[in-house]
Design a protein around this nucleic acid. Sequence first.
DNA 1: CGTGTTTGCGAAAGATTCTTGCGCAGCGGG
DNA 2: CCCGCTGCGCAAGAATCTTTCGCAAACACG
Lengths: 163, 163
Amino acid sequence: MPIKADLDAIDWKILRELQRDGRMTNVELSRRVGISAPPCLRRVKRLEETGIIRGYRALLNAPALGMDVVAFCLIGLHHQADAELKAFAERTRSWPIVRDAWMVSGESDFLLHCVTRDLSTFQSFVIEELTSTPNVDTVRTALTIRQVKDEGLVEISALNQTQ
Amino acid sequence: MPIKADLDAIDWKILRELQRDGRMTNVELSRRVGISAPPCLRRVKRLEETGIIRGYRALLNAPALGMDVVAFCLIGLHHQADAELKAFAERTRSWPIVRDAWMVSGESDFLLHCVTRDLSTFQSFVIEELTSTPNVDTVRTALTIRQVKDEGLVEISALNQTQ
DNA sequence: CGTGTTTGCGAAAGATTCTTGCGCAGCGGG
DNA sequence: CCCGCTGCGCAAGAATCTTTCGCAAACACG
């Protein structure tokens, strides 16, 4: 899976542009990276097929859609055997409130990124779902005030583009 | 900003589809939501112009691009006056390692989502940048083992689509 | 009830983009 | 030197995008 594909400067430019605007037309993309459309499309498809581009996603405005609460939950389990970790991971997938989740090492075992309509919905989730889930030991929550940075997942620097 | 736009069932379907595949053609999208292409395109543009769709982004495979470490940092500051919060928020934007960041309430003041090439790069960042930043009190880190869930930001349920 | 307004759908057509096939140039190995 | 490999770009047909326009349904109002 972690295939360190060898990408040239043009590939890095493509990734940077598509990370900023994933719906750009191939013609526009080809102009920005400095090649013609057909080889540009071939490169994009290759990046998609090799899994370097995992997909494309529209970014939505949660408050405008009536989702006013974004919060993170740090979960500590009583037992961290493989079966228990998998069981909790599976459970996170069944909670629509949890938008993405990570298994982590450190003081906690899981980090949950939650989005809900309002505070009482979130509180109900924590009390009635999270803390009452078997094997859950500690639940620490952090309500977000606002997002202060939002770049794509991967940094694409001038260094990458020229090496 | 939090304009609770009134969306009908078709709008919700559009949001769901574009959150799953933001690069879908308008013709394909119109087929999936059950209307013809022109009104579908008008709806998408309206969603973009009203800010409900904030943009589109390619999702990249970080390990395949040589970024093997994903971690979260919980930052506590000594002083939480408005000026200090803004100063730290601004500083997070200058760190390329920090991909997105949230101001939070709870035990910590900021949550940082970090992606680096390797562990030593991350450790250097924590020691040489984070802990040595003025006004930083506590730094707790959580190294991710793996992502166990990755949906879009907003839940789009059957309930939304029919109301 | 009738009329005017508003709203949104869908057909049609031209412009743009996508996609494929093919020829050509640069490069490294035999 | 020649050959195979790789990747670019031109060209052409297919698909899509985008605008324009007519139409029908919903609604307000007299």
